[in-house]
């Protein structure tokens, strides 16, 4: 596929960029700034190209011009609405009618608010509540002791955790104590998630070091 020379150039380039980013750990320097500048330019270009071909060309252009009438979905003309909103967005560049660009913005915000309201209510609130409600001794009354403790912990933790989030009631007295227990659970959650993540982050570094040692320096096979 790639000629030998190309392969070597690519390898050294990748190594140069990798070490350049790593050098930031020591301190900000020219090498890092070059890498940063390249990264910003290349990636902004990358995303525009991806948007252009995937969204503007494949979704819009193909949808309204290329696809034969017979193969179009019934509601193909909705694509024009999208494009019209997009063009309204560009009116921002014309100072006199710039305020019209708030329309597509209002459209997006309204739609997002509407969509999230129901989907998150269903999946985050209803489903989680339903999942919390379960018999503490197990469905068949045969749960081992640690599972019983686990079930109690989940019920109590969810309950007190929610109490912590109450905004309109002062955290005092019994309510305050429950909220304190809630924070206790939240802290365990944060500690556990953090500890769990350390693993994940190390793998990424191992991947990069592996590249430097085996692909670039060929120290290991």
């Amino acid at each position: 596929m790639e000629s030998g020379l190309m392969h070597h150039v690519a390898l050294w380039l990748a190594a140069f960029l990798t070490l350049g980013i790593f050098s930031f750990l020591y301190r900000d320097n020219t090498w890092y700034k070059v890498c940063e500048a390249i990264f910003v330019g290349i990636s902004a270009g990358y995303w525009f190209v991806a948007y252009f071909w995937d969204n503007l060309y494949t979704k819009f252009w193909v949808g309204v011009w290329v696809t034969p009438m017979a193969d179009r979905p019934d509601d193909w003309y909705v694509l024009y609405v999208g494009a019209a909103l997009g063009i309204l967005m560009l009116l921002r560049l014309v100072p006199k009618v710039g305020w019209i660009s708030r329309w597509p913005l209002a459209f997006i915000v309204g739609a997002t608010a509407g969509l999230y309201l129901v989907t998150y209510f269903a999946s985050n609130v209803m489903l989680q509540i339903e999942d919390t409600v379960r018999p503490i001794f197990g469905a068949e009354n045969d749960a081992p002791i640690y599972e019983i403790i686990g079930n109690i912990v989940v019920a109590v933790g969810t309950f007190t955790g929610l109490i912590y989030f109450f905004f309109s009631k002062e955290h005092r007295g019994a309510f305050g104590r429950a909220a304190k227990v809630g924070i206790f659970f939240l802290m365990i959650t944060f500690g556990a998630s953090f500890g769990y993540t350390v693993m994940s982050r190390m793998s990424l570094l191992i991947g990069r070091m592996d590249f430097l040692f085996s692909d670039w320096l060929k120290l290991i096979k």
């Binding site: 556990a192 769990y196 793998s203």
Partner: peptide, 11 residues
């Protein structure tokens, strides 16, 4: 999943 997202998947 990446280890970082796994805890959120437990529910």
């Amino acid at each position: 999943a990446a280890a970082v997202t796994a805890p959120q998947l437990y529910p």
